[in-house]
Every structure is written in C-alpha cells, then in structure tokens.
Design a protein around this nucleic acid. Structure first.
Lengths: 125, 125
DNA sequence: AGTATACATTAGCAATTGCTTACGTGTCAA
DNA sequence: TTGACACGTAAGCAATTGCTAATGTATACT
C-alpha cells in the first residue's frame, strides 16, 4: 500500500506518549499563559545549556502530532498554542479510575477531614 | 557511592512513563474489577501470541515501580491490585489544564447546550 | 525426596528515542 | 540582492526500551 502520510522519523504520537517526556510537559506548561514562539519556548533550555534549539523543535513536532498544540505562522515566527481539548483521551481514561478510587478512599477522606476539623477546634475538657 | 537501591534494568518509572505504554494501560484496565494473578493478567496476551509471559512480568515491574499497583504474594501466586491514589500526580497535572480549557470552552458549551435544547423543543412560530 | 507450578530475573538483541551537528527554506531588513 | 534571522528537517549516534529465550527460586503436590 502507498504511504498514507509522511513519517518524519517517529511513528504515531498519541497523547499518552506526548506527555511522557518531562521536557514536553514543561513546554506545555509554558504555553498555559498563552501562545509562544519557538524562540521563546527554547530560550530557557538553550540558555541553561540543557538542550539545543532543534531538540525543542522535535519535541514540538511530537506535541503537534499528538494534537495537544497547534501552531500559526506569523511573519517568520511560528506561534504555538495549547489545544487542551485533546487531553480528552487522557481525561476519559483517568476518570475511569477516579471513580473507582474515590469510592475506595471515601472512608479515608472522611476520616482525614474529621482529623483536620478536630485540629482546628482544640477541644479543652 | 554505594548502590542506594537495585536497578533491575530500567531507570525511574514515574506515572507518566508507566501509562505511556498501551499494554501497561490494558493491564491497569484488567485490574479495575479487582486483583489478578500474573497468570490471569498474562493469559490474553500469551493466548493471542501477542507477547510472552516474562514480557508481562516486566511491564508489571514498571507499574509496580511507578506505584500504580502493588502486589501480594499468596501461595505461589502474586496478586496485583490497583493503587490508583498514585494517579494523583497525573490528576493534579491534568487539572491544571482542565480549568484553562473549560474556561476557553465555556462559551462553546453554552452554545451547544442551546442547540440541543432547541432541538428538543421545536419552536413553531 | 522429586517434580510441577507460578512467577521473577537475566542476557542478549533489534527497534526506537533523544539528542547533536549540519543543512535547507521562507521571511524581514538594508 | 544580499545577508541575517527564525525556524524545520535530515543524518548520525549513544542510550534506552521492549521483547525473547534461558535460567533461577519459592511454593505446592506426590
């Protein structure tokens, strides 16, 4: 069969894979306040000699492929912005466990709440 | 310096890494109904020739290290169970984006709700 | 005791990941 | 047009991952 799409160098890049790398998570965090150019995103890494700029470009490509970010070209700069709707996969997956786990921990939660309350209201006898 | 701990063959295994692999997610799903032995967990993979049993053991070791599961030895079987409290890291991280994203999508949500309502209450003029 | 079961652990490997350096392309500025 | 800038992309590489086959180690069974 003919190539259905370009495979730059990596395979698929689902959301789970995309957020597995700490640098990629850090980039996402940097995008919370708003869109950023590649230069802006790369600056702290390059400045601290943690990584070179192309490495950031590659991480951005993976984030792009996962749908967690998109980009817009403006002048000679590329502005990346968050597209967190695509965290839905992750959200749904997580919710599956949340309900299980909140059931299990309800009793413990109640207990801890009682403890905290008793601390706030010192009972003198 | 002396080895602080045993490094079987992998490095750290945080939660993000642990859930990055589809097989590991599938194993977690299998544990939702309750604890399972390694044999039970491995069976569908081995039966379908997708993987051998040691491979499952290795995935379980990573899940164990991440804190997402624990195990209890009973007889000659090891029973693994979910420990989803340790999804807190992930939960907290995700919540960070959720609020950002729900803000952004509120308007759209309202719009869609209005659409749905209008569909249910056909307006004859 | 010996044998089978249920598992972990190891060694070895092919494939993938994550980086760097080098290069290519479009855009602004003089 | 010529050059600098902002970026993507490719080639090459060391390190890691994910598997298998082989081996070790308790536990139960006879």
């Amino acid at each position: 069969m003919p190539a259905s799409s370009k495979t730059t160098q990596h395979a698929a890049a689902d959301v789970f894979t995309a957020i597995a790398h700490p640098v990629r998570r850090q980039i996402l965090d940097m995008l919370v306040p708003g869109e950023q150019s590649v230069g802006q995103l790369a600056e702290p890494f390059v400045e601290s000699q943690a990584m070179t700029r192309p490495a950031i470009s590659q991480h951005l490509a993976i984030l792009l492929e996962s749908g967690l970010v998109d980009r817009e070209k403006r002048g000679r700069e590329q502005y990346y912005r968050l597209r967190p709707e695509n965290l839905n996969d992750l959200r749904d997956w997580l919710r599956h466990y949340e309900h299980f786990w909140s059931d299990k921990l309800d009793a413990l939660g109640d207990y801890l709440n009682r403890l905290a309350q008793e601390e706030q209201t010192p009972d003198e006898t």
